[in-house]
Structure formats: structure tokens, C-alpha cells
Write a protein that binds this DNA or RNA. Structure first.
Lengths: 298, 298
DNA sequence: TGGAACCTATCAGGAAAACAGATAGATGAA
DNA sequence: TTCATCTATCTGTTTTCCTGATAGGTTCCA
């Protein structure tokens, strides 16, 4: 069996005759004839009924044709994919996102991306506890989406994406829930356990957003949300995530508003979401596309 | 590009070196080397890193390999399928079933069938209004499942499958629903509209099961069931279908039992389900398998 | 450090294939 | 019937593919 035989089969069916296929393929008629004959011998099946003037596919030939078309298409896909690769297209692109809560607005963009680069493998990481800069420096990730760092690294290029508001959440069973109407003071918040996201590094970033004396550290916003639901403390959560949680379980969670801003860490103000890339690393077409698409997002 | 090149690529990766691949393929090492080299030229990509002792797949090569494995597998599937065809296996099998209500017990058998004949195309027809014998005679269907006919055709081979009971169903809103406790008489039934399945032929079969004077004819059991639910009449429905309907909407439908059998058409007694095949037509392996499996069903 | 054992690339020559061109027979329309 | 068009098959040529040999690189070990 042979790729050219399968392709010849497809062209013969398309054009309706061996001669026409030969013209289309710029070959002699005898070449087409013997190619089909050999394919029939190899498969052990008669593909065409030649009793009439024009060859006619047999029932078995019909089924073989279907398979052949699929194989031809995949071979062509391989060729095109290879052509893309030889033009410098990436075969894999890794995007590291700080937080699964970004997925709702990110997913539609990734859907577009999949259409633009159908054969490319996308790796989407949510390295909750790892350093994104490390991932970029080690080449583990090509692009990253992260909150604005307190101490910006110099070897990372950064572009602003959007500002994320944080919402104060407690469970209805929590003592602070009584103040849902009037609002709470920072002083009151400080007297209850705060739930915070931790990272693996014991740096300054870890204390970001800390207000209370009593703190539990958790791995990721989802874990924080789960413990807030249990009434184990209060937390600031990204607005998109909080919206989703409030919509899903409207009776379990309450948003609180603050009456004052005394002693409030500045990092709880709207925090800038950023797009990161390692400086000096030349991106492929796919990385450039995604970068442009993320920055031009309406 | 070439099928052998793709296969060679797969073997090289599997064995770990060009030389080992050559031994496995019973070819000279130079043949493998040039095959890979030509594939690289054709695709415009370097597939292997040859700086070390053993060639190592590049990132691009990894992706090409994935595609190549898929293509190889499909070519092998085509070969096996063709081998089956040349051994006389059918490429398509059509099973015509009188009634969609048979699907619950039929589906698991068809699942087994799909495993036994993975490449075969199954056509499953529910020709509600057509004559099954005609489908068999015209070669439109290879096998058929039908109720026992009142006048058996001589050119159709028939095997008994199972007896189907019929259940009397009405909606809770129907006047007859009042007799759900005590049961109804045939006389009472005759005074209300009966819903019956019609077929396209205006033969004796059409009147099968008729009891009432006032009758509506509908296309198929599902349509009958829908109108019964609306309270538009009563109907005898196959027990499996009735069970499903009662389980899905326990409050909308009621089963009735008959107090007498005066004037009851004999065809409402358990009706034999049968398997049909046109006499004299030699079946392929798949048809024989399905026939045996249906008859040996526990 | 140098040799043994393994690997790969490349070359020339021969086997196998695929090809073009010509010919004969078959089909369908005028 | 004639004619245009199709397919199968044959022959010789071109192209491809393979083998075997050779040269050079890598790894390991004495």
C-alpha cells in the first residue's frame, strides 16, 4: 500500500475516470491504471467495477475511499504542520496563570487561539504556589499572567492587562455577617481570622493583603473560598471569583463593605493584572499572536 | 513524504537508534538513515538531534511522531479492514426494527456487535410505516426484527425471539382513569377513542388490535404514547415501552387491567417478536454473528 | 590517552519500482 | 456503423530504493 495510491484513488473518484485523473495528476493514463490495479491487489479487494465505460466504485471501494480520504487529509495536515514548524512556529506554547479565577475571561480568547493555531499544543498552568518568574526564566512557560508584583523583576517584560477588584466575603454563619447592612471597620476585621493565599516563597509577597493578626494560609483562591464558606474566617477574593461564588450559592456567602480604610494595605486596592514574558527571548508567531490578542482585548 | 518513512520514524523512536531500527526492519542501516534524512528534507524539519551517540527526538520531531503514529495506525486499520472485506465480511449491515421500543434490550447487543466488527457500518432502521418484508426483498435490509405477522410470507425465514406483553395505558385525566382500581371491561374500552399504530399498507395488519369503534391512527408507538399522555384516548402499548414511560412520568399515566376478555382480538395476547431474513440470501460473517447472538440471547 | 564498540552519514552500484508511450480491446453516442 | 473516449497491457526508460562499504563521531573502559 502506498500514499500515492490512496491519493490517486481519491482523484479517480473525484474526476470520474482514470484518464481524467491522469490529466489532473499530470501523469500518463497507464500510471493511474496500474496504481489502482496494484492497490486492489495489495488490499485484496476490487475497488472499481470496470464493466461500464466509466469505472464505478464498488461497495467495498466506497468504504476504502472513506478511509483513504481520512489518511490523505491527515498526511496533508502533517505537511502543513511541518511547514508551519519550519517557518518557526512553536509546536507547544505554555501559558502560566496565577489564578484559576482568570479562566472565565481567558477561555474565549484561548478558543480563538485554538482556531488560529489548530495543531499547536497549549499548556495552561496554574502554578499556585510557584514563582512565575522562575517558570519564565527556566523556559517552563512562554507567557504568564500574574498580579502586579511588589518588587518588579528586571528581566521580565510586563504589560498591564486589567485591574482586578477584591471583594470582602464571609459566610452567613460568621459573626461579621451581622454587619452586612452597615458595613464593617478595619478594626473589626482585624479581630477575626483572615484567610490568605500563600506562595511557596517566604518573601514579602506572602504578606500581601494581610490585615488581621490571626491568619490562615491556604493554597489558592479556591481553597480560601471553600474555608470561607465553612465560616472559618473572612477573605478578600478577586471580584470575578466572588461573583461566581455568590451566584452559585447566594444563601451561603455574603459580601461586606468597609466603612473606613484605616491601616488598609494598599495592595487591596484594585490590583493590576499583568502579562509577563522573559526579556530577550524571541517569541514565535503563536506567542506573538496571543500577546497581541491579550493586550488588544476590549 | 512516504508511508514507509513514517513507519521507519516510528520504529527508530521505538528502538532508540537507526541501526536498531534497521535490524528490526530487516534492512541496511543506510536505508534507515536516508529514509529519515529524506523525511526531514520533505518536511523541512530536523526530527532528530544527532550530536549524541543515540539520536534524540527534537521537540518538533515529537509532534511529527504523534501525527505519524496516527497515520500509521489508520493505514494498518485500512489494511485489516480490507483483509476482512476480501474474506467476505460485509462492509455494511442493515437491521430494520419494527419499533423503537425494542431499543433498550437491543442496544447492549449492538454494543457487543460493534466490538466484534469495529469497522463495519451498521444501519439501524425503524421503518415505522413501511413493509419490512419489502425492505428484505429489495436488499435494503439484511435482517429485520418484527412482530409475528398475521399472514406469514413464504420467502422470509423467521426465528422466534421473545413474547411481548401489551399494557393498557391511559392518562390520569382520562375518564377511564377512574377504573384504575377495579379494572375496566372491553365494553367500556369500546366506548372511548382508541389510539393505534398504522402502517403504510392498507392490509389486514392495519386493523390488528382494534377494539373500539372510534380510532385514531398514528405513526409509531412514540406518537401513540404522546397522545395518550394528552388524554386523547387509550392504547395498548408494548410492555417495555410502557414501563419506561411509567417510570419517567409516574403521575401522568396509569396502567389499567381488563376484567373480561369478551371480543378481545387475539393479537393483544402476548405477541411473538421475530427475527427475519430473506430466504436464500447468503449472509456474511457479521450477519451470521448478529443472528446467532440474537437467538442465543439469555 | 588510546582503543573497542557502538553509532551515523555518505558514496557507488545494482535491484525494484514507477513512469511514459504505444497498442489493442471495450463502451457509448451519433 | 463510425467515432470519440475509455481501460488494460506491453516495452523500454527513468527514477527510486536498497545494499554494502567506508569514513567519521560518541561513549566507555583499560
Amino acid at each position: 500500500m502506498n500514499l500515492q495510491q490512496l491519493q490517486t484513488l481519491a482523484v479517480v473518484v473525484e474526476t470520474g475516470s482514470f484518464s481524467a485523473a491522469a490529466r489532473r495528476l499530470q501523469k500518463a493514463q497507464s500510471a493511474v491504471s496500474s496504481a489502482i490495479a496494484e492497490l486492489e491487489i495489495d488490499l485484496g479487494i476490487q475497488l472499481f467495477d470496470r464493466s461500464k465505460r466509466y469505472p464505478q466504485l464498488t461497495a467495498a471501494g466506497e468504504r476504502v475511499l472513506q478511509q483513504a480520504l481520512i489518511i490523505n487529509a491527515q498526511c496533508q495536515a502533517l505537511s502543513e504542520f511541518a511547514a508551519g514548524l519550519s517557518d518557526g512556529e512553536e509546536s507547544t506554547l505554555t501559558l502560566a496563570v496565577d489564578d484559576e479565577g482568570q479562566l472565565p475571561w481567558l477561555a474565549p480568547i484561548l478558543a480563538e487561539f485554538a482556531l488560529a493555531f489548530p495543531r499547536l499544543e497549549l499548556r495552561l498552568l496554574f502554578p499556585l504556589l510557584e514563582d512565575l518568574t522562575l517558570l519564565l526564566r527556566q523556559g517552563e512557560a512562554d507567557l504568564a499572567i500574574s498580579y502586579q508584583p511588589l518588587s518588579p523583576p528586571t528581566d521580565i517584560e510586563r504589560w498591564p492587562l486589567q485591574a482586578i477588584n477584591f471583594v470582602l466575603l464571609v459566610a452567613v454563619t460568621h459573626p461579621l455577617a451581622a454587619f452586612v447592612e452597615d458595613g464593617v471597620t478595619t478594626n473589626q476585621l482585624q479581630q477575626h481570622r483572615q484567610l490568605l493565599v500563600t506562595d511557596r516563597l517566604q518573601g514579602v509577597e506572602k504578606q500581601r493583603g494581610r490585615l488581621a493578626a490571626d491568619v490562615w494560609w491556604l493554597e489558592g483562591d479556591m481553597a480560601v473560598l471553600a474555608l470561607v464558606k465553612q465560616g472559618l474566617g473572612w477573605a478578600w477574593l478577586p471580584e470575578p471569583l466572588a461573583q461566581t461564588a455568590l451566584a452559585e450559592q447566594p444563601k451561603a456567602l455574603l459580601p461586606l463593605h468597609l466603612k473606613d480604610t484605616a491601616g488598609l494595605p494598599s495592595s487591596i486596592l484594585p490590583v493590576q493584572l499583568e502579562l509577563w514574558r522573559q526579556r530577550g527571548k524571541t517569541p514565535g508567531p503563536a506567542a506573538r499572536w496571543l500577546l497581541q490578542r491579550l493586550l488588544n482585548r476590549v
